[in-house]
Design a protein around this nucleic acid. Structure first.
Length: 554
RNA sequence: UGACCUAUGGUGUAACUGGCAACACGUCUGAUUUUGGUUCAGAAGAGUCUAGGUUCGAGCCCUAGUAGGUCAACCA
């Protein structure tokens, strides 16, 4: 941990607990995902927090799948979650499942029944809801609230044996139907679901509710600091109540504000909808805010960890600008990505004074940020080149540093050229630019003495390889699709994916492997997509380069 | 109409626990640059939701407002 950095409120709490010797100075946190969806950037914050807390205070973190609702959970999700956490760079102490504790939780429930603190209720879901009252009115006691302990014991065991149908009975804690906290109004502990569970199969037909599973699991594992998001704050009195009545290990719950990002949605329900309704190609569609999508898009684990570090941890609602996430990837990729030249919108350029048919191999440094410049690669150069269409202007303004009639520019890693003429088609599109090159201006041993303002990238027309570029924009047009008027899907950005099939890349890219990250000089960071094949290269744009020229608007 | 939580530049987080508000992103200058990238130097931008109170002194404490959030799934 950086000693100069101010501690967030959770780090302060843990630091104090360690100092005071609470739990013998031991720190054990847990990350408790429900395996009913893929992890997203908001989970990354929680992962960094939980694992970070443990790391900083010499503790450990358990991975515990909160799998108490078999209808929505699946092993596909279990596997993706494990992969994402490891990819982010964290290792859990133990891989655990709440379902492993089903027998123990059943015992806990029996204990509470015996203490007269839990009862079986025959009321329907509707009846229970109506007797619950509202936040401003107290609830009413269930007519089944005062069943004898013996009867409760008998009924509960028969629930377990499968003698009743779904919804016929539930087990409730006997707390206080008049409590101002809705969660204390005799919360449900168990419900009947004759559903196969992804791990326990058909062994159980009663499943514990979150409130009677999460805290108890924390306690069983002797979690010292149980960190969750703000919406669980109202559950804390109940969390404490169960622990107190059961007299089990006193885990404590702490809440922090979840991460929100603008121009996207972060609820698993909504993300699942985008997947199911085919608005995206899957959970790892690079436009999604999921970890797997960010990975596919070219984000690095370090950039995400840095991002989570920078957003901070507090208890107030927040909306982080995606710009910060983008800053974090650029920061990392600038240091590690190899530079290559790819022309996104090619136009032909002929060097009039270069010998026909000649090919010259030039050298290009791979990354100026690295000590050894990342080594060099070969760049074939010839009479016919391709350059970016917008690197030429027929009538350039004074501040345009690129090519135009009579103007000179440097071809990156090559020569200075001067534009002599150009050709247009009937529609007015530039079809060919003709330049002369200055042989003494060769990159590395330039003796020409000529200074030019601009440098542009290029590829050799005869050597370039074509590739597909997938250019992503924000998934939604509005900052907060969830609160915007209408359905959140009404605000999807129709241009969130633009496919460019005409790009031409330097030949060194032939050997790119899926996941390889590059900086396309002057354009952005890209990585080879998993759908890419050797004769059809596909690159995802992770993020564009900052462009103060484009921003100046001209 | 209830309970609980929160309130600091555009955004997010700080402020050594009461000593006239800092850092990051963003924005704007300028320098360097064979990427209009990077890097470097600098600037603008809040007087801390409001009103009272305690105090020599309040962003930090108290009171009352105001605003936002959470809570009435057999979801987690």
């Amino acid at each position: 941990m950086n000693p100069d950095k101010a501690l967030n409120f959770l780090e302060e709490i843990v630091a104090e607990d360690v100092k005071s010797g609470k739990h013998g100075g031991r720190v054990l946190t847990r990350f408790p995902p429900e395996p009913n969806g893929y992890l997203h950037i908001g989970h990354a914050k929680s992962i960094c927090l939980n694992f970070g807390l443990a790391k900083d205070f010499d503790g450990k973190t358990n991975l515990r799948f909160d799998d108490t609702n078999p209808v929505t959970e699946d092993t596909e999700y279990v596997n993706s979650i494990k992969e994402d956490i490891q990819w982010l760079g964290f290792n859990w102490a133990q891989e655990l499942y709440t379902s492993d504790y089903f027998p123990k939780l059943y015992e806990f429930a029996v204990t509470l029944i015996k203490k007269g603190l839990a009862y079986v209720d025959d009321s329907s879901a509707e009846q229970i809801a109506s007797m619950k009252g509202t936040p401003t009115e107290p609830g009413k006691n269930s007519p089944f609230r005062d069943r004898s302990i013996e009867e409760n014991l008998d009924l509960f065991s028969r629930m377990k044996k499968g003698e009743f149908k779904d919804g016929e009975k539930v087990l409730r804690a006997k707390v206080d139907m008049a409590s101002p906290n809705m969660h204390m109004r005799d919360p449900l502990m168990y419900r009947i679901k004759h559903v196969e569970h992804h791990r326990t199969g058909n062994e159980w037909c009663i499943y514990p509710m979150y409130d009677f599973a999460h805290g108890q699991s924390d306690s069983i594992e002797e979690i010292t600091h149980s960190v969750c998001t703000l919406e669980f704050e109202v559950h804390r009195p109940l969390y404490d109540w169960f622990i107190e009545k059961l007299q089990i290990f006193p885990s404590h719950q702490y809440e922090f504000a979840r991460l929100n990002l603008n121009y996207t949605v972060m609820s698993k329900r909504k993300l699942l909808q985008l997947v199911n309704d085919k608005h995206v190609t899957g959970w790892d569609d690079p436009r999604m805010p999921t970890i797997s999508a960010l990975r596919r898009r070219g984000y690095t684990p370090l950039s995400i960890r840095n991002f989570c570090d920078r957003v901070g941890v507090a208890r107030r609602e927040n909306v982080i600008d995606v710009g910060l996430l983008e800053f974090c990837v650029r920061e990392d990729l600038n240091k590690i990505a190899m530079r290559v030249m790819v022309v996104m919108d090619p136009v032909k350029l002929v060097i009039t004074n270069y010998p026909d048919g000649q090919t010259e191999i030039l050298k290009g440094e791979n990354n100026p940020e690295l000590e050894d410049k990342g080594g060099e690669r070969d760049l074939p150069f010839g009479k016919e080149l391709l350059i970016e269409r917008d690197d030429f202007m027929e009538n350039p303004g004074k501040k345009y540093f690129r090519l135009g009639p009579g103007l000179k520019v440097r071809l990156k890693h090559a020569y200075i050229i001067e534009c002599e003429s150009f050709e247009k088609d009937a529609a007015g599109n530039i079809t060919e630019i003709r330049c002369k090159y200055i042989p003494e201006s060769k990159s590395g041993n330039d003796t020409s003495g000529i200074n030019v303002k601009g440098t542009i990238h290029w590829v050799s027309k005869t050597h370039a390889i074509s590739c597909e570029l997938r250019l992503y924009d924000r998934l939604f047009r509005v900052e907060d699709p969830s609160t915007a008027e209408g359905d959140f899907k009404d605000h999807l950005n129709p241009d969130s994916l633009h496919i460019n099939a005409n790009a031409m890349a330097e030949p060194s890219l032939k050997n790119a492997k899926a996941g390889d990250k590059y900086q396309f000089i002057r354009k952005g960071y890209f990585c080879l997509d998993k759908e890419s094949t050797s004769n059809h290269l596909i690159f995802n744009r992770t993020v564009s380069l900052k462009d103060s020229w484009a921003k100046a608007g001209s």
